[in-house]
Amino acid sequence: MLITLYSTEGCHLCEQAYRLLVEAGLKDKVDIVDIAFDDALFSRYGVTIPVLSIQNHVRNVPELGWPFDTDSLKTWLITNKLG
């Protein structure tokens, strides 16, 4: 499982989201994608970051958008059979 954290440099909310992932023991499973370097990603996530996504070829996993906390992160992972 690889979790994508859509982010951009200098985003304090993105830093908070990353800390939650680290605290959940997911540091090695996080791929941080800076939306500033991709027009399509910037258009999609420019005002909603941080956003978490999981690429799953078996089924569609809904993204988790900010705001989220430890409990909602855990619920998202469990609901999607990732935690």
Rank of each mutant, 00 (worst) to 15 (best):
D38C: 11
D71M: 14
I54W: 04
I32E: 06
L64H: 02
V51L: 10
Q55T: 13
D34N: 13
Q55M: 07
I54C: 11
G65W: 01
D31G: 08
I35N: 12
H57F: 10
H57M: 07
F68M: 00
S53C: 09
L52G: 00
Q55Y: 14
Q55N: 13
F37N: 11
L52T: 03
N56V: 08
I35Y: 13
T70V: 09
D69F: 12
K27S: 13
N56E: 15
I49P: 02
N56D: 12
S43H: 09
E63V: 05
A40G: 05
I78A: 12
N56Q: 12
F37A: 05
V51D: 02
K74H: 15
A40S: 11
V51A: 07
G65N: 05
S72V: 12
F42L: 05
A40Q: 09
I78Y: 14
T70A: 14
L26G: 04
L77T: 01
S53Q: 08
I54Y: 08
D69P: 09
L64N: 01
G25F: 13
N60Y: 13
V58M: 10
V22H: 12
A24S: 05
D38Q: 10
I49E: 02
S43I: 07
E63R: 09
D39Q: 09
I78P: 03
L77N: 00
V58C: 07
F37V: 06
V22P: 12
V30L: 05
F68V: 00
S53H: 15
R59S: 14
S43C: 09
L73W: 03
R59H: 13
G25L: 09
N60A: 11
V47E: 02
T48Y: 07
F42M: 04
T48E: 03
D39G: 09
Q55R: 15
H57K: 13
L52A: 02
V51P: 11
L64Q: 02
F42D: 00
W76A: 00
K74V: 13
V47W: 11
R44T: 05
G25A: 12
Q55D: 15
D69A: 01
